[in-house]
């Protein structure tokens, strides 16, 4: 177990290192720089700016310098938001993004599993067909379609919820629903298929033959095993919520990290961009590891550490 976690952790670090390096050189490889949009600078002023923002020297020198500071937890300065460090900017915006992502994550998993289980229990009934058609619809529509439509209906026509921005729970509702929608649907489909398969197995018949109540059979015996495909989807789910949150934050004007990500590409704000990428990538790889670790806990027949060699 320990060796497995250690090995996975090492590969996590390697992935992070590669992603950071690729991002760094991609940003530096494009022509133009972060100070091009400003009025013509005197050579001396330009040099001073480049020195201040660690943009002097060759690309390789910049790279090693950046990596060195990174090891100490210093993500560098932002070239767009003057006198602010990337650490400060991220500390301010990440909690917002994390709240939105966490709410959507809970909504997607709990809602999806409930709906999927319900559809499986109502096998053959019109409710099942309804859930299945609705979920295929939700999967096919990109998040940026329901987002503005929800604003149109609930904020502008009905006036129940705020149009956008960030504040209390009322501000969280529409964005979280928009972000979670397609994944509620996807998880519902996964749960239904796998629940139907598990409910047909012998050990479930045994449990029923023992005279256990139906909810006990489903909740205690079937659910744990039937949830395996859902657990293996949690990694991709986290990835999709991360990228999805960029769009949702743009739609609802939420001051999270996603907006900074998009702006930093357009503003050529290298350090900020790399900072956001590092955080996103680390989150993603970490969540994938967690999902892998949950596997043997849910199904005792699965052994991770043998096949991981």
């Amino acid at each position: 177990m320990f060796a497995f976690v250690l090995r996975r952790f090492a590969s996590m670090l390697l992935v992070l290192f590669c992603v950071v390096s690729i991002t760094f050189f991609l940003m530096r490889s494009a022509p133009g720089g972060p100070f091009d949009r400003e009025r013509e600078l005197l050579p001396a002023a330009r040099q001073a700016l480049e020195l201040k923002y660690h943009l002097n020297g060759t690309a390789w020198q910049q790279y090693t310098g950046y990596m060195g500071r990174l090891v100490h937890g210093d993500l560098g300065p932002s070239t767009k938001y003057k006198n602010r460090t990337v650490n400060e900017l991220l500390a301010q915006t990440l909690p917002v993004s994390a709240t939105l992502g966490g709410a959507a994550f809970l909504l997607a998993t709990l809602g999806g599993i409930t709906l999927g289980g319900w559809a499986a229990a109502r096998r053959g009934a019109p409710e099942e067909t309804g859930v299945m058609i609705a979920s295929l619809l939700a999967i096919s529509i990109p998040t940026f379609v329901p987002g503005p439509l929800l604003i149109l209906v609930f904020s502008l026509w009905l006036g129940w919820l705020p149009v956008g921005g960030w504040g209390g729970a009322a501000y969280l509702l529409l964005p979280a629903v928009t972000l979670a929608g397609p994944y509620v649907a996807y998880i519902a489909r996964l749960t239904r298929t796998s629940m139907l398969e598990v409910l047909g197995q012998d050990y479930i018949r045994t449990a029923r033959a023992k005279g256990l109540a139906e909810w006990r059979v489903v909740a205690r015996h079937a659910a744990k095993v039937a949830l395996l495909p859902v657990v293996s989807f949690l990694g991709p789910l986290a990835a999709n919520l991360l990228t999805g949150s960029i769009v949702v934050e743009t739609i609802f004007n939420i001051p999270g990290a996603g907006g900074f990500f998009v702006n930093s590409i357009q503003n050529r704000d290298g350090f900020l961009l790399e900072g956001v990428v590092i955080v996103y990538c680390a989150l993603l790889v970490g969540l994938n590891l967690l999902a892998d670790l949950a596997y043997p806990w849910l199904d005792r027949r699965i052994k991770l550490y043998d096949e991981a060699v």
Binding site: S11, V19, L26, A239, L242, L284
Partner: peptide, 21 residues
């Protein structure tokens, strides 16, 4: 490993870098 990387995010950066070039 590629599955575990936020590909679309890297892609955004790559497109803008290569397009300018």
């Amino acid at each position: 490993i590629l599955y575990a990387v936020p590909r679309l995010i890297i892609l955004l950066i790559a497109i803008n870098a290569f397009d300018a070039r």
